[in-house]
Design a protein around this nucleic acid. Structure first.
Lengths: 221, 221
DNA sequence: CAAGAGAGTTACCGGTCAGTATCATACCAT
DNA sequence: ATGGTATGATACTGACCGGTAACTCTCTTG
């Protein structure tokens, strides 16, 4: 193997060893302004899992990067596998919080909901640091069918699919399930292609693709 | 970690330890009918990488599963990373061989070429043992940007995208690049969704999705 | 002030990782 | 028969893996 990404990343999430500024001492080991060890570990793990991959990041690396030790990790999480599952659970929560906020802004207009969702997606896949969907990526990496993260992943995707069907029904599509699946494929495709063809790849046409597909489906009804 | 899939798989690619049949001894260690160690290693690695993931499969497991030893692996391949790259290179070759054969059957009809391509894809994602696209999966797992497999992956996907643009141009689409990207997104989406929502997921609508998209694009011109 | 909780530190466990060295064996073509 | 080539077998290296034990420190709360 070339290198298992154990080198330190450049920017830290929570600076703790920052040089003292104008006489006042920097954040001490225990400080009200400093996030808890659990929080630092969780944030660091989330970032590293996403950017480097789950299997490529060891618990030792996570702890060091969070400026703590492995012991604090295992005091707060039962295992690496559970930490991974926890990370994905939080991603799911954040996802739906964003989604619901967006949906509430256009509560009477399903078409605008879809448009807004794809605008968000388009913005995400335009970020050169983005590396697709954490859920889908985790599904690729974690092939053990009884891994605790798998049910999180499957539930997340199933819920998204159902939500799309609901919106497509509200839009009055003749075959809401078909349109929903088509939109789902576009979403997933956009996320995965950023990892092979980058931000200038097919992903940048995902919003237009969705629009054409919706028009085609509504015209048919 | 739950388990790093080092247990033996049930079915062997090349049976070597098969019980003797009607008095004649089974395949011996060296036998004209027996594939070379290199071939057995390559075939086994290809299967395991695809089914269990690259990082989840160790060289020791590959060797054992191929009924040989690590030494034979390293006599035939410079490293695991190169073995991975080699696997993907062969996948690329097979892919284009199949594609070209299909294209030649409909050399004057780009529309039928696309239809045939999506029929093949639909058949693949209907296989419950399938686990998406090896190239895309490898891109998820191998985050080191200088991994020898990465250039294979990027070249493969870029070539596919270009090929789609070419066919869409021949079809007379007003915006062949747009349509090509749309089809690309559907293809990639179908592959990746089989790993989260299975064969009954959105992937089963990929062919219809492609048809509608093409119709919509051609109608617009 | 006392007690307890959260956190840091260090050392360690057994196992697996990719990769190598060495020697023995079996086959094939000459 | 012989010599080269592919293969097998075993043992090993050093690094890293996930996970644990035991002890100290420090801050907060009563």
């Amino acid at each position: 193997m070339i290198l298992t990404g154990n080198s330190l990343v450049n920017e830290r999430l929570h600076m703790t060893r920052s040089p003292r500024i104008n006489g006042r001492s920097p954040l001490r080991k225990r400080d009200a302004n400093r996030p808890s060890a659990r929080q630092r570990i969780f944030d660091t793990a989330s970032e590293l899992f996403y950017l480097k991959g789950i299997r490529a990041v060891g618990v030792e690396t996570i702890a060091a990067e969070a400026d703590t030790t492995k012991m604090s990790l295992y005091r707060n999480f039962p295992s690496k596998d559970e930490l991974v599952a926890e990370w994905l659970r939080e991603h799911d929560a954040n996802f739906w919080q964003t989604w619901d906020a967006m949906a509430n802004r256009h509560s009477k207009d399903p078409r605008r909901q879809i448009k807004a969702a794809f605008a968000l997606l388009a913005k995400h896949v335009a970020d050169p640091k983005a590396r697709g969907c954490p859920m889908a990526n985790a599904a690729v990496e974690l092939t053990e069918k009884d891994h605790p993260a798998r049910k999180v992943i499957e539930a997340h995707k199933a819920k998204l699919r159902a939500r799309l069907v609901q919106i497509c029904t509200q839009m009055g599509a003749r075959e809401p399930r078909l349109l929903a699946d088509q939109l789902f494929l576009l979403m997933e495709g956009a996320q995965v292609t950023t990892q092979t063809l980058g931000v200038r790849g097919p992903a940048r046409n995902v919003a237009r693709a969705a629009k054409m597909l919706i028009d085609a489906n509504l015209r048919a009804s």
